[in-house]
Design a protein around this nucleic acid. Structure first.
Lengths: 100, 100
DNA sequence: GCCTATCGTAAGTCATGACTTACCAAGATT
DNA sequence: AATCTTGGTAAGTCATGACTTACGATAGGC
């Protein structure tokens, strides 16, 4: 639910590949597993982690489950990096003051 | 050296705290360890991971080593998220076309 | 109603990595 | 030069988590 969960979720290589696939086009579980070197249950588990992190949303379509990107999670993660970036800029400014 | 290493580096809670401290103000190893619930060697190891990921740079000052944020690593990570974001927007556009 | 397709969950295995203590190297201090 | 400070490295322990196979549950097709 937070940017921290998003970071740990996207830190895993397989999970990142899954997320990138879904980012380009929402998908069901089966097709994702076909394009990856891991089993379908593994993909299911990764999808759960990504969903719990707030990075994906699911839409049940009859038999299948279509996963798509939850923009809120991605937005929160980008905001976190923005604040880090601002902190760094602030630190630079402080160092210039001290150098004088 | 890549955004992937940056993600795994920032996925760890302790490492994230270290990075946030340094983002606000560059620091040596000892002071960092004092503010964290882990030992100094642990901090050293984390700093190595963050440096290898391209997120930190070191400046040797006599006895001490001052760690500061390497903006290149942070920039690369933000760019990666930007491309993801663009992919998602593109996917949305595609879905609208198909819905028509 | 039966069979197939789709997918989540349980249980177990195994590798990775975060942490500790112990040690060593090099600069600063007296 | 002896000592203290600072910090990186080695070795070992332990928990986490990524993966597998086996199973169960639900929806669709014949």
């Amino acid at each position: 639910m937070t940017y921290q969960d998003s970071l740990t979720a996207l830190a895993d290589s397989t999970r990142r590949q899954i997320f990138e696939h879904i980012a380009r086009a929402p998908s069901a579980v089966g097709p994702l597993a076909d394009q990856l070197p891991v089993s379908r249950p593994a993909v299911s588990q990764h999808l759960k982690v990504l969903s719990d992190a707030g990075l994906l949303v699911v839409e049940q379509q009859g038999n299948r489950r279509i996963y798509a990107v939850d923009t809120n999670g991605l937005k929160e993660l980008r905001q976190y990096l923005d604040t880090l970036w601002d902190d760094v800029l602030g630190a630079f400014a402080d160092s210039f003051e001290k150098d004088d």
